[in-house]
Design a protein around this nucleic acid. Structure first.
Lengths: 325, 325
DNA sequence: GTGAAAGCGCTAACAG
DNA sequence: CTGTTAGCGCTTTCAC
């Protein structure tokens, strides 16, 4: 057991409350006293007991981060940034990985909520009703999911998608395919909506394809249908799918970007390493991580009138996987 | 505020202590009473207050996971597995990312320790003395770092490295290079030691190269010195470096594996996606994650006499990046 | 089998 | 500026 505040107080010859104040509101104490307490504290190797403080204040000093899959580079960078930001704000970060399962997400959230000050849900698949009711219990911040009632930080792919479709159109492509992600996810709906809109505007034919999963393997599996549908250009839900599709297309003897152009979304490191490197829409997940924690902090501090809504801009990064129609 | 145990007790018509027991030692209560309490609890939506429980028991119910870089696929999969395992064991997981900085690691650990039951340090770079003194305060489990006094789970690359060197030797290579990682890290020392040993045994010339960092970019930068040193085969500290080196080598007109063979370590997903796919030593970091949490649990439960030492086997996975000398 | 009561270590009024 | 005093919600002897 580590030294308690009481021990420190005694050692410094003051009362517990004074000792407590030396750490929490040093301004209200005489500098001399503060020094004395601080000295006593380090002498005894005092470490505040977090649980006791929580019990007394009602504050937990930690927030939960819920992501679908930490092993996915996109979320990993998100988590990294969020953790760093949380640390600066003196909040510990409880990590939870839902393994892409809404069911697990529900259970995790349920157990996490009572022990944190707030929770950041990344690409949540919970029902709207659950989300809203959750908000009654804790502070909630949504990332990559738009719900009017809740604060959220969104990656706004509108610019990126527009640029992507225009880029393909400019190259002379007229038949486009979109290999979508999980149909019910907010991100996918957005992407699909935008692609449909711009394809329509520019007069491109659009085919929507379903991969088994939004992963590299999903991309491999999607290659056949890409070729089958006759599109000369394809936008995928994310880079992983794009990469898988490119690899398999190449293996099938279809050249990229000679026969078909491919564009992914996320701008993960691997997108630059493939051959050819993958054109992609750059999604600032590290910024999303930082921002989401900032928003959370805002919520924990002063309560703002309406839920903040942060949109993060995206941009097309042209690389070798797109070319002449 | 959520309902308290007191409220549940009242609702069930029992005392607080009985209510408490209904959850903690139901065996000591009449089944009927347990049912009554449980019913009352769910009726009121009771959620135990973690802080209060901690204060009373001294147990925190959470463990910290400290890794150098969550964005590194190797650690990401480690974290994912550890988190999943922790969840099953009903331990929340506090995540900390040291950003490869021993300095930050020290500060993080210091702050984390008082609020957890135990801490898992992955590829720690702390001084031996710090590590040992740390152990006095909490339960500590080391991953990828061997310290006699402490329990650790190690990835044992001996088999993998031996197979790698033998494989290269069998292909006819006689001049080998090792592009090392952080020189002071335990993993690197191990790898270097083993490569030196086997190269010597088989009569291979060995050159040790220093990349700027154990990353993809580090690999790119190392390509020049690889060619310069005249080696026909190279083993790198990890896959990221291998991939970077392969890409740059190719860009420089050196063919892989025609002119030089490359072998990495980690078996990250990307290793299969490169062109050619990268031969690598498979390191089971997901198992390491699970096992480390199990070891931690063992420590938290019964205190064993001597610190457990778990070694995880590795194996060479031959792919396209190695070939004729 | 169940209840009463004493804290766990800290904070936050409320006095002085 | 500093001390006194209640708790925060739960676990845990110790009785009955």
């Amino acid at each position: 057991m580590t030294a308690t505040l009481g021990a420190v107080a005694k050692q410094a010859g003051v009362s517990v409350s004074t000792a407590s104040r030396a750490f929490n509101e040093p301004g209200r104490l005489s500098p001399a006293t503060v020094d004395r307490v601080v000295a006593a504290a380090r002498e005894l190797g005092y470490q505040p007991n977090h649980a006791a403080r929580s019990l007394a204040t009602g504050r937990r000093g930690s927030i939960a981060l819920v992501v679908p899959d930490v092993a996915n580079p996109v979320f990993a960078s998100f988590v990294k940034a969020a953790q760093a930001q949380g640390w600066q704000q003196r909040q510990a970060v409880l990590l939870a990985d839902t393994d892409e399962s809404p069911e697990l997400e529900r259970r995790l959230v349920e157990r996490l909520v009572p022990q944190v000050d707030g929770i950041v849900l990344c690409s949540s698949r919970l029902d709207l009703a659950e989300l809203v009711s959750l908000d009654a219990g804790t502070r909630v911040v949504l990332v990559n999911r738009e719900v009017p009632q809740l604060p959220s930080v969104l990656v706004d792919v509108s610019t990126g998608i527009r640029q992507a479709v225009e880029h393909l159109h400019a190259l002379g492509h007229r038949r486009l395919a979109y290999v979508q992600g999980h149909p019910l996810s907010w991100s996918n709906s957005e992407r699909l909506r935008l692609i449909t809109e711009h394809a329509g505007r520019l007069g491109l034919a659009l085919e929507v394809l379903n991969p088994q999963s939004p992963t590299y393997d999903g991309g491999i599996a999607a290659a056949a249908s890409i070729r089958a549908c006759g599109a000369t250009a394809v936008v995928t839900y994310n880079d992983l799918v794009a990469l898988g599709a490119m690899a398999q297309l190449t293996a099938m003897g279809v050249t990229v970007p000679g026969d078909v152009s491919v564009i992914g979304v996320d701008d993960i490191a691997m997108a630059t390493m493939s051959v050819p490197p993958c054109t992609t829409i750059s999604v600032p997940m590290d910024r999303a991580g930082r921002v989401s924690i900032e928003v959370m902090q805002g919520l924990l501090g002063g309560h703002q009138a309406e839920p903040p809504l942060v949109r993060l801009e995206t941009q097309l990064k042209v690389r070798g996987s797109t070319g002449p129609a």
